[in-house]
């Protein structure tokens, strides 16, 4: 034992006898509150995520829907999409920072490694997009089907692997759903892929949010 806790300033007492029913209630309530405070996600955050996906991808779809031939998202469309995504990332990072404040150890190191993996994978997808462009692949692929489909498949695959490791089956399910939606929506036109992915992913995340809310309510009632 490291024994770094000082003995001075001691004011605690053993607070008398505790009724077993009261002890059970206190144990359940404390466990539930602690789990909620350490939780890296919340139903509200997921609900917000569903709206962000729909609005961000919807903005790009609005900017490309009348293009013939397809040239790719316009500057205003990209500004709206990246603006919304940056705001979303800031919210998620702040939420997670609050949940992990004061924490140290294996899980925290694993989370940092997971974040590094995700960023590296998304950068690699973008680099490969540049390769496609320089090889003269059509704009429908380079700025249409490829970027969104590849990024969603990468996000889904990494998410599914991480959630399976944590045995978080609702999280695993939504990650698999995002991969399937991305693969299926790739059959839509380069214009339609933005809207189809936006609606599909938004519904999947909305379902996940509802599942999270249901689980929390169920846990509170037991």
């Amino acid at each position: 034992m490291n024994g770094t806790l000082d003995r001075h300033d001691a004011t605690a007492t053993d607070e008398g006898d505790l009724d077993p029913r009261e002890a059970a209630r206190l144990l359940a309530q404390t466990t539930r509150e602690a789990q909620r405070k350490f939780d890296l996600s919340s139903p509200l955050l997921s609900l917000l995520g569903a709206a962000v996906v729909l609005v961000a991808l919807g903005a790009v779809w609005l900017s490309v829907r009348t293009q013939h031939p397809y040239k790719g998202p316009t500057a205003p469309g990209l500004v709206v999409m990246y603006g919304i995504l940056v705001c979303w990332i800031v919210v998620v990072v702040r939420f997670r920072a609050r949940a992990t404040a004061g924490l140290s150890g294996r899980a925290v190191r694993q989370q940092r490694a997971e974040a590094a993996t995700l960023v590296t994978a998304l950068v690699a997808v973008s680099v490969f997009q540049g390769v496609l462009k320089s090889d003269g692949v059509s704009l429908s692929i380079v700025y249409g089907v490829y970027p969104l489909t590849a990024q969603l498949i990468v996000l889904g695959a990494i998410g599914a692997a991480l959630q399976a490791g944590r045995e978080n089956w609702p999280g695993f399910g939504v990650s698999i759903a995002i991969m399937l939606i991305a693969a299926g929506c790739a059959f839509a036109s380069p214009r339609g892929v933005w809207l189809a992915d936006g609606i599909g992913c938004s519904i999947a995340v909305l379902g996940f949010s509802a599942g999270q809310a249901f689980s929390r309510r169920k846990a509170q009632s037991t």
């Binding site: 605690a12 206190l26 144990l27 404390t30 466990t31 602690a34 789990q35 150890g105 294996r106 899980a107």
Partner: peptide
């Protein structure tokens, strides 16, 4: 079986195995 210590143990048990929590938090 003392309210404060029960809450301390239950809170620390909610952390993943091998993780620690700061005194302040």
């Amino acid at each position: 079986h003392v309210p404060a210590r029960l809450r301390i143990i239950a809170t620390l048990a909610a952390l993943p195995h091998g993780d620690a929590l700061s005194f302040t938090r």
